[in-house]
């Protein structure tokens, strides 16, 4: 009981336990799990990162000539690093940086914009398949 009273008096002069964020910056630990970085020149477009991602934050949209474009959603990503571990070219095509993601703003249109992108990616895949089937038919029928 006396110890508790003594503690209560000492607490009057001690600094607060909470961190003075955002006035003082937060110390990041070593190997902080940050945003995923991508370099299209080394990528071989094997689609392994797209298949492994648990929430589906990496998408590739297909063009009719066979080339693919990479899309990444930093607000859906859980920063687990499974995509980096699945990539055959770790460090060159895909890597995990130590930058922290900024919070989403309304001008980014985070939810509706990504839903539209998901739909357009599905449609581009179907369009590519139809295009390939039509090309094959044109080759076989004289």
């Amino acid at each position: 009981m006396l110890k508790a009273i003594k503690n209560a008096f000492c607490n009057l002069t001690k600094p607060p336990l909470t961190h003075a964020y955002p006035a003082a910056p937060i110390e990041k630990p070593k190997d902080y799990r940050g945003l995923i970085g991508y370099n299209a020149q080394h990528c071989i477009f094997c689609d392994k990162c797209e298949k492994t991602c648990p929430p589906g934050a990496i998408l590739f949209s297909w063009a009719l000539d066979g080339s693919k474009t990479y899309h990444y959603n930093p607000y859906l990503c859980i920063y687990c690093g499974d995509c980096v571990r699945a990539c055959p070219k770790i460090g060159e095509a895909l890597w995990q940086s130590e930058t922290k993601a900024m919070p989403a703003l309304k001008v980014d249109v985070p939810n509706d914009g990504w839903d539209k992108l998901e739909k357009s990616v599905e449609e581009s895949k179907l369009a590519y398949k139809d295009h390939k089937a039509a090309q094959k038919k044109a080759k076989t029928t004289p």
Partner: peptide, 27 residues
């Protein structure tokens, strides 16, 4: 908070760890 700081040093996150995967651990 002290214990959660130790967990952040090991796995990179305070609450949801994503530390265990089939075949072993990640870090």
């Amino acid at each position: 908070e002290l214990i959660m700081g130790l967990q952040e040093q090991i796995t990179g996150n305070r609450v949801q760890f994503d530390f265990v995967t089939i075949g072993g651990v990640n870090r």
